[in-house]
Write a protein that binds this DNA or RNA. Sequence first.
DNA 1: CGATTAACCCACTATGTCAATAGGTTTTTG
DNA 2: CAAAAACCTATTGACATAGTGGGTTAATCG
Lengths: 131, 131
Amino acid sequence: MISTKGRYAIRVMIDLAQNDDGSYVPLKDIAERQDLSKKYLEIIAKELVSGGLLTGASGKGGGYRLSRKPEKYTIGEILELMEGSLSPVACIADKKYKCNRRKKCPTLPMWQEYDKLVHDFFYGKKLSDLL
Amino acid sequence: MISTKGRYAIRVMIDLAQNDDGSYVPLKDIAERQDLSKKYLEIIAKELVSGGLLTGASGKGGGYRLSRKPEKYTIGEILELMEGSLSPVACIADKKYKCNRRKKCPTLPMWQEYDKLVHDFFYGKKLSDLL
DNA sequence: CGATTAACCCACTATGTCAATAGGTTTTTG
DNA sequence: CAAAAACCTATTGACATAGTGGGTTAATCG
């Protein structure tokens, strides 16, 4: 399941792409347009900034702005930043996960195949595809 | 993320397929072979029975048995039974989910496309493919 | 300079799900 | 009747999710 955090992040990115007039867009505006809690979006926007996807500016006239053009973002990187990992099972998502059945696990190849499918799907989608 | 419940269920089904000699297989044996908690497997097996995927038999000489041949099961139906839904987002998974942005939601088509991808992947895999 | 507007920061919380565990009851066979 | 098994109900600890609250810092405008 994709969490609200990941989904809201995408909506924030779309909103910013659609309302880009060169200046910074305050979270208040986004929250109103998208009908989402401004407070919660703060958390999300912060993570997007620290992940390098957005640029934030404090003070009057401040807000957020895409740091690249919409076609330079993949949905995969947005989701992976917010969700931590897109991998479907612990033994793939968590590098440190230790499973001594790994070598003979009859299901592992399926999870790996699935993981690739999901990865390719989301990394193949650009933010600009959703505008 | 696929939960342990879904993954253990698949392992139980595989174990039953591999150890099918016509008689019932007690959970104790499966738990030992798979190194999983028998108590926890009880919950899983119960659901598999009520979903029609397994046949259970109480009493001495009892246990569980596949109710069809391995090639007649899809991984999708096993997972869907255990996980409730394979759908990636609430607005698709939950029929009753109400979203008044649905008509103009820019992300919905992507989720629908993703949902189909996941569905087709797991319903295209048979239990017999994992043996 | 000071008011305003905005991001930034830290803590907290309610709810729910996950992954079991515990202990007992019923069913079946030998 | 004893053993072995499924079946049933309840509970638990840990963690994640989806926020909320209250303040601090930064930047701009008059």
